[in-house]
Design a protein around this nucleic acid. Structure first.
Lengths: 186, 186
DNA sequence: AGCTAACCTGACCGATCGGTCAGAAACTGT
DNA sequence: ACAGTTTCTGACCGATCGGTCAGGTTAGCT
């Protein structure tokens, strides 16, 4: 993998997440990378391929987390370790998660986005099956969408802090937010 | 105002919020309304005018709420009444808020979006000036972005409830989420 | 019926979109 | 120096974008 390819992937991810996939042109990505549009299409055979390269690592990582979740059941300790894993995930892949959350429902014709939607759906069901309460479902939605939003706009919100402090605060807030969601009796 | 104009406004708002402003074509809006693209441009002289018509009521309403806020200071009672006002606002204008939150930063060249960004900034400062804590700023971001996300995707999250129940749950969750933000001594 | 104004449309415009292709430029190992 | 591969580019294509314009259709008023 050449340096250009990896640089293009990073630029495309940032633009897709902030400006939107459909609203980001290959010309714009090329311009930011200091290349021509043709060069972008040399490294990635289509715009969709570029999107796939940008987001698939995040999908695989989250899929893996959810797989281990089915085995290691819903004990309180399992809950806490899952939350830690999830916070690490969302901190590393904040742009990807923001993209899935905001553009997933409207990009259903793109295969890789469908995979992402399925993963988000699995995550939602993990919480939804354990509660029939409307408030609890809302708690999950606010936690997921809120964390993705906040982490991608913390600059404009005046939040600037070392990542350790961000991580600790996020664990605190999400724990509190999701705590009322009932753990089923064993 | 003809029925077509109001119908176009509603359709455009829904499409702009879900698919994105840049990604939504006038042809698409016309198609959903059962009209031609030319007819859309008869009622609204440009795509930007249509966006303005779609979102300006929400901007004015939120601006009004923030104006009364500066007078009626930061007493705990004022806090609670503000939260109620804000929940009513975000329930009525959930599509508009979702649009501001997700597309505001990337549409700075559109004047009406700049107005919206200023309002969001005022709201952020209302919370930010009362706290220097990183965690508290993050609480505000999660509450704002999370509520906007959850209210616009509650269908796919399996949340279907009467609006009164949604409202009550939202007040509960946001109160809890924002409670730790310190109220300054009088 | 006749006039007016509101409403709607198809044809057309320049610009930009994603994508193709032939070939130039740069780097490699020999 | 040479050949081969990787990297990069400009010219070009059909499709779609937002927007203009001249003219057709409908409705109400006198």
């Amino acid at each position: 993998m050449s340096t250009s390819a990896e640089e293009l992937r990073a630029i495309a991810l940032a633009e897709f997440a902030t400006a939107g996939y459909a609203a980001t042109s290959l010309h714009r990505i090329a311009e930011l990378a200091g290349l021509s549009k043709s060069s972008v299409l040399y490294h990635y055979s289509s715009k969709e391929t570029l999107l796939e390269a940008a987001v698939s690592p995040a999908i695989e990582r989250m899929g893996g987390i959810l797989d281990t979740l089915q085995v290691n059941s819903l004990s309180p300790a399992g809950r806490a370790s899952f939350l830690n894993e999830f916070v690490d995930f969302i901190l590393e892949y904040r742009r990807e998660v923001n993209l899935f959350i905001n553009q997933g429902p409207s990009l259903t014709d793109v295969p890789v986005i469908d995979q992402a939607n399925e993963v988000v759906q699995r995550l939602a069901e993990y919480f939804a099956t354990n509660t029939s309460s409307v408030e609890d479902k809302m708690r999950f939605g606010i936690a997921l969408g809120g964390a993705a939003y906040m982490l991608c706009t913390q600059d404009s919100l005046g939040v600037q802090s070392p990542i350790d402090e961000t991580r600790a605060a996020l664990v605190t807030i999400l724990s509190e937010l999701l705590a009322p969601i009932a753990v089923p009796a064993p």
